[in-house]
Amino acid sequence: MTRPFRVVTQKNWIAEQFVPMGAVHDWGFDIDPVTAPETIWWAPGAWVASALKSGVHLPLMSCGPHWLGNLPIALVGRRIVTGRLDRVGIHDNLRNFGEDVFVKLPEAKLDSFPAALHRTKDLRETLAQSGLPGDTLIQIQDPMFFSVEARYWVARGEIVAASLYQIYGTVWGAPNWEAAQFECLWSAEELDIFARMVVREVPGPPGYVLDVGMTEDVPFVIEANAAWSSGTYDGDPAGIFAAIEASHDFTGEHPEWAWNPNPSLYTGGPLKVLTS
């Protein structure tokens, strides 16, 4: 069965790279409740949350907000705590951290609350002023600085596409990006080996994205993201599409990997639902 493929974005170039895979550019103004559950999607998490508000459930999968924090310390190299925003500081979950902590929304991205370093002693006050719902899931980590970062797209236990996206402070898309890639050939090879080991040994959904990075010549997992909403960088579009397709549970065989929106994503209204 050939399923329709819709790319929800305001950026034309994202949709255009998937045209060979049959992609249709969707501006995201509305949704068809009849065809949507059988469609392959690339879309922002906030848009999918709005679809859910409209009563349209899409069969999307991800590693989940607690996946990273449950990994062995040997794979992540830092302490990671994930919990509700309104419970930060309870049960002494900040006591073991240093003066600064890295704070992000797991499996969610909001311009109003970007991933950033914060003073540990001020964190509860900072979060209280964020305007986010109390049940928002946040992730607190020891700061870790990666010299090189790479993304890997996974489909059914295999890495099907890969892309570097940060090299010694130069980010993908910068004017000197091509020159920067020659500075990290050894690191890139090490990251490839490490990423394949993680994919092989750590359980994950049939389709997802794995970000890994190098620090002091040692590779670690940065995070996992949903294949159906992650930036594509220099990844091979055909391989990325394979991971996106694999991240859809059309048969209902993988309820343990079902994506549930972080409450922070429920800030938008419901989508317009098309009627026949």
Rank of each mutant, 00 (worst) to 15 (best):
E107Y: 02
D211R: 03
K104C: 15
S276D: 14
N225Q: 14
G231A: 12
F29L: 13
A162P: 10
F29N: 08
T120Y: 02
D92H: 15
H25I: 13
F113Y: 00
T2K: 04
E125Y: 08
L60M: 09
N93L: 06
Y168P: 10
P205Q: 00
R87T: 13
E16S: 11
G64V: 09
R78E: 06
I90G: 10
W47V: 09
G204V: 04
V212S: 03
A23V: 10
I80S: 08
L271W: 01
G169I: 10
S230R: 05
S62L: 08
T120N: 09
Q129N: 11
A43G: 04
T39K: 00
H91P: 10
R200I: 12
W47I: 05
Y152S: 09
M1H: 11
M144D: 07
R196D: 12
G55I: 06
I222G: 03
L52N: 05
V160H: 02
V76I: 13
D135S: 08
L132G: 10
V101I: 03
Y208G: 03
L123Y: 00
T82D: 00
V81W: 03
E189C: 13
V24T: 12
M144K: 12
W257C: 10
R95S: 12
S230I: 14
L137Y: 09
Q166A: 15
Y152Q: 05
S50P: 11
N260R: 15
F5H: 10
V202I: 15
A23M: 05
Q17H: 07
P237Y: 00
V202D: 06
Y152G: 09
G28Y: 03
V48F: 04
R124T: 14
P44K: 00
I193W: 06
